[in-house]
Write a protein that binds this DNA or RNA. Structure first.
Lengths: 340, 340
DNA sequence: GACCACTACGAAAACGTTTTCGTGTTGACA
DNA sequence: TGTCAACACGAAAACGTTTTCGTAGTGGTC
């Protein structure tokens, strides 16, 4: 096992001081051309690489971004990470990813650990449990310590920081209006219970679209799924005998369960009933029929989040600049679960 | 912006030396009960947390595992990460994830950066490009530096390190035998070109199963997909007029394209033709018909990889212990693309 | 010869820890 | 009174860098 080369070792080997070595490698004019060349040659030959940890300690910068997300086994979040990574790497940062598993405690612990020097700033999408609890002390703490924080997707209004969101309401409205345009009038909604902010917002978009289209709002056409694990059966029984001509679901799972349920009732999608989902994942693309859906542009969100964070990290003055909230536009992806 | 509390600040505030503070916080018997309590109370009050970077430098340990994978937007890899994270966190490690995007260069760069002190060891699945190139200098280098390396999934035989694999050959054999058991004789194979090791191994399993079942091997029933992006049309034309009674596909995408193609030919799955895939992703679960497939137990692989790595990291003697190769058993998940 | 300005380098502090070793102060004991 | 151990603490080195400042040596100028 080869020992890693350090400045000290080079110095000893070449019989100069540590400072000389350091300066030579950084091309300081203080060092004569001769010694500089000698040192650089030696360093190159033995493949010297500065130790990141020592640099971090010295510079009080880790060049690392901490990302905390609710789950990793989740297509949308991975696209966001992908966007973060690309921008981060371009700018010489690397990325530590932690998952909260939607647990408040794990979110807090992860943030605390990363905040103890491992990370210069955070990109975060909060856990469901955190939203329910309404306890945000871990967020305010890192902000008070001067660590920049960018929230995305599931953001918290009360917290003062940069945010990247999609306009869930507008996206949902877009979806429902599309259904209206295709001639639908009895449009069902399959959503989540209200404390999940996106569920709430998308529900609002549904309502807005109906209002603007002068379609009466009918409580009976709305299902708020209680338990994700049993959503399939909940949806199946909800869809019975409602005589809808369309359904808008707030995620792709609900959408395909809806399609499945309709097909079991002998209805054809999109001929008899049309379906739109939210989130453009693997499932939406490959399912048969493939799903018309709202694309959240996760990669773009990640990229913007990283850009915003790095801007705050690198620009000293940026500290006093007001916080931004960037809204990423949603896109409507037309596929085969709606009429062409 | 509050300054972070350090030992030095506490020392100054309480008018003792830095060493006293350090010892008191670590409950050293050297320090009198009185001062100890005083210091601990102060530290707690102002929420002192030791700086991880300083600790890393001092201990020459980062308590961090570097994970390098080809892609992050990929269900299987995320399950592996999930397993790694769970075990790592349990044992007080955190995880840095980098993606190579299947690029050799990016893989090399990522490893070099992480090896410069950011990480104690690596868990790696190599990029496709690396497999093609056959250039493994970055791997041998980190190993020579004494950093433990655990490879998973796509491993490289020539490299001497711990490995976690599934028995691709056996898994594939299992799948094909299942088809044989269901009465199939003309079984097609949809695989990748040979330099992707898993494609090769799974192809071997297919051949083994046929041999053992005394079914003649027919070159015409094998498709090696050249271009993933056009796999759908490749598969569609391949499947034309081959009169198969079953297909084994080496991943879930190929499997559903096969189903799609059959359905377009007016064949019913599983009644007329049965299909088995590999990798149990979202798609396999939700597709209609849901896919019978081989489960790779990604989470388990990740967990084992993390355990193996941490064992090497924590056990000084383990350094000389021989390298292990752990084979994770594949499981057959029966769903609706084969006959019940 | 006195003064000055360069040049080329080294010493040391700093980042925040831990740990080894040294030392001043007690009190006990002969 | 002198010796010694125990106690409680501090100084300093170390991890690997960067950077500020100090300085020995050289050569030129008057």
């Amino acid at each position: 096992m080869k020992k890693r080369l350090t400045l000290k070792l080079i110095a000893k080997e070449l019989d100069v001081s540590i400072s000389t070595v350091s300066k030579a490698l950084r091309d300081s004019a203080e060092i004569s051309e001769d010694t500089r060349q000698k040192i650089k040659a030696f360093a190159k030959l033995y493949n010297y690489k500065p130790n990141n940890i020592a640099l971090s300690l010295k510079n009080r910068k880790t060049k690392t971004i901490g990302v905390i997300i609710p789950e990793i086994v989740h297509h949308y979040f991975t696209t966001v990470i992908s966007g973060i990574e690309q921008v981060a790497n371009e700018k010489g940062y690397h990325v530590i990813i932690c998952t909260s598993n939607n647990s408040f405690d794990k979110e807090v612990i992860n943030m605390e650990i990363l905040a103890n020097g491992s990370t210069d700033g955070f990109i975060l999408s909060v856990a469901k449990e955190t939203q329910q609890k309404g306890d945000y002390h871990h967020l305010t703490e890192v902000i008070e310590q001067g660590m920049p924080l960018v929230m995305f997707d599931r953001v918290i209004d009360e917290i003062n920081c940069d945010k990247i969101i999609i306009d869930d309401t507008l996206g949902a409205k877009k979806a429902v209006k599309h259904l209206v345009d295709k001639g639908c009038r009895r449009i069902g909604l399959i959503t989540t219970i209200d404390y999940v902010s996106v569920g709430k917002l998308r529900t609002q978009g549904y309502i807005d679209a109906l209002n603007e289209s002068n379609i009466a709002f009918d409580e009976n056409l709305i299902l708020k799924v209680e338990d994700f694990d049993h959503s399939e059966s909940e949806i199946q029984s909800f869809l019975n005998n409602k005589h809808m001509d369309a359904v808008f679901a707030v995620n792709e799972h609900f959408a395909i369960y809806a399609i499945k349920a309709f097909q079991e009732q002998g209805l054809k999608v999109p001929e008899d009933v049309q379906v739109i989902g939210f989130t453009d994942g693997e499932l939406s693309k490959r399912f048969i029929p493939s799903l018309t859906t709202i694309n959240q542009h996760g990669e773009e969100m990640g990229a913007q989040a990283a850009r915003l964070l790095i801007k705050k990290l690198e620009n000293e003055d940026a500290e006093d600049e007001p916080f931004e909230t960037i809204i990423i536009e949603t896109g409507l992806v037309e596929r085969n679960s709606t009429k062409g």
